[in-house]
Nucleic acid binder design. Structure first.
Lengths: 222, 222
DNA sequence: AAAATCATTTAGACAAATCTAAAAAAATAT
DNA sequence: ATATTTTTTTAGATTTGTCTAAATGATTTT
């Protein structure tokens, strides 16, 4: 079954808004998609008749098993293109999202599988988000927030939990990217800010607001 | 100015139907696009108000200078993606067109310029068609139809003038692709068929219908 | 040159995705 | 428990791109 660009955007947004087991509201979705609540209601009816949604009037909604599968396919396409743009075309990580929003709607299973192969079956995109495989399986890093790691134990940044240009800007300014090794030098309990540093770089401070979005890879080796 | 997918498809089709200086008819365009003539008329009005067309009722039409520029941009995107699919993702040349039809509508100037750079600024796509550069300039091979070359002078196939699956199938069966060196061994005047062969391969026959679509690169060296 | 045919346009309709304004249901406050 | 506010849905309109059927312009035949 093929879906319109608009349907795909709704499905993807619902997937992101519903965590595990959560319900989504009409207003939340309309805010996410920058449309009017009335438009959302219309689309919900449509997605319900296509059996992608569990939805009863006034009760909130979430994706059905089938809807979830469709969402994972869209996210797979989005993140593979992000990886391609970043890795092959050398886009910076703030730039990839917008272009991938368009590329994700190109529907050719063969294209995506060949792209996946060409890229070497990457499991994480440039923001550290997992890329579903062709069966919808997603890998997970064992990860821990930088606010929670012990001081003076260098670890690798593996995920950024917010992709707003503002946050990406501040991270880039401090030379923090996926793969960067950081260690915490001091925690200031007054405002929960952190003094951190790279292996041979200068120390600098992350506010709590920034730090809570920075996640580190748990390393199982000693 | 940005155009809808539908507008872009009309512009591209008009570009292909009008040769140099030619006019296009409503029926020809409706046949090309698999729509009804009435739908074409509707779109012509729209493209005219956007100044992409030279069009007076009942008189036929062609692209304006601006329309031509837009068309070349679309064709650039299409052919760069075809090259990418063929060269990097190893699609066969029959498969590239359909996927490129979708990818060509992704509008990001930066994406296309970076892709162009990544691919090494190719000047011809997998069918031997020229890829416009970012200013709309297109390279041309000096080329000659295989029906017109003298016998026993090996030359390189540089262009295939028809991309129907049927023709591509027959060419693939005979191991003819862009870059293949062929020489004509004999011309049969009865039906204008040609006996041709590769450097060390067996001889085989091309019917006139096939041969007239096969073009060879004129080599300026002796 | 009138008749017949063919090409093109107009008129009116439809589906998809959106909107505004108003109504209805649910949640919250008094 | 009733009133108020918030959320959600309905009703009806709009835009885009398409369609069919009918009308009109252009071309060809006799």
């Amino acid at each position: 079954m093929l879906y319109t660009v608009s349907e795909e955007n709704y499905i993807k947004a619902i997937f992101h808004l519903q965590g595990d087991e959560g319900m989504v509201t009409t207003n939340a979705l309309s805010a996410e998609l920058q449309t009017r609540p009335a438009s959302v209601t219309d689309m919900l009816k449509k997605l319900k008749t296509k059996k992608l949604l569990v939805y009863e009037k006034y009760q909130g909604f979430r994706l059905s098993a089938e809807g979830r599968k469709v969402a994972l396919g869209i996210i797979r396409r989005h993140r593979l293109w992000e990886f391609f743009l970043s890795e092959k075309l050398r886009f910076s990580w703030e730039e990839v999202h917008e272009v991938a929003e368009q590329l994700e709607h190109v529907t050719s299973v063969k294209l995506i599988d060949k792209l996946d192969e060409y890229l070497g079956y990457p499991r994480f995109d440039p923001h550290g988000d997992p890329i579903p495989d062709r069966n919808g399986k997603i890998a997970t890093h064992e990860r821990i927030c930088i606010t929670a790691i012990p001081p003076d134990h260098p670890m690798e940044v593996c995920h950024v939990g917010n992709q707003s240009p503002e946050l990406l800007d501040i991270l880039r300014h401090n030379h923090i990217a996926i793969g960067t090794y950081l260690s915490v030098r001091k925690k200031f309990s007054f405002d929960n800010s952190l003094e951190v540093c790279t292996a041979n770089g200068p120390a600098f401070v992350l506010s709590e607001a920034v730090a809570k979005h920075v996640w580190m890879k748990k390393i199982d080796t000693i």
